[in-house]
Amino acid sequence: MSLEQFKNRSVGTQTYKMVDYEPTPDTGMGRFQRVVSRTFRGELFVGLYVTMREMINALFGGGMHTTKYPFEKLPISPRYRAIHDMLRLLESGHYRCIGCGLCEKICISDCIKMDTRYDENQRKEVTEYTINFGRCIFCGYCAEVCPELAIVHGQRYETASEQRASFSIFDDMLTPKDALGQQQEFDGFGAVSPNADDNIKKTPLAY
């Protein structure tokens, strides 16, 4: 694309197809002619033909577009931002969260609350971690800021529940210990890009 095309700011004149609006006729005869021509142009029957074609196509040509939602679900994008998941380390099974508190800091709707302490190994341990999903706006900043890919957005978009607390407890969001094998590496918001290895360059210290 050349620079000229970029500089043309009047978007309406480029690729849009202009509808052919004739000027309203002034004389009575002109109006009469317009009515007659519109009546016999057969546009109404084109409309009827289109709906009939779609109906036949839907019924016999497999063109039906309905997804029977609770029984069928459409695949959602990996970048979709639904209820959060807490991931575990694949090697040790320990949760990835290091208790840095960045997600709590960056949360713009102020819905993440966490509490940490040092355990016997002088390692940060998460004692409390809740997300108030009544306030969360699913902006995705927490997943983006997380240095360990510990908090990510999952695929659970059916967020109706009987209690507010249903999703918000850390253990509920954490991958179950026995399902560690099924834990999917998140390739959505804030994740490492697929070609991350190619982008790694040797630092001067390695020489």
Binding site: T51, M52, E54, M55, N57, A58, L59, G63, M64, H65, T66, K68
Partner: peptide
């Protein structure tokens, strides 16, 4: 039903 088919939906099912 007919309106649904013409809009490529299933209608009441």
């Amino acid at each position: 039903k007919v309106l649904a088919f013409m809009q490529r939906r299933l209608g009441p099912m």
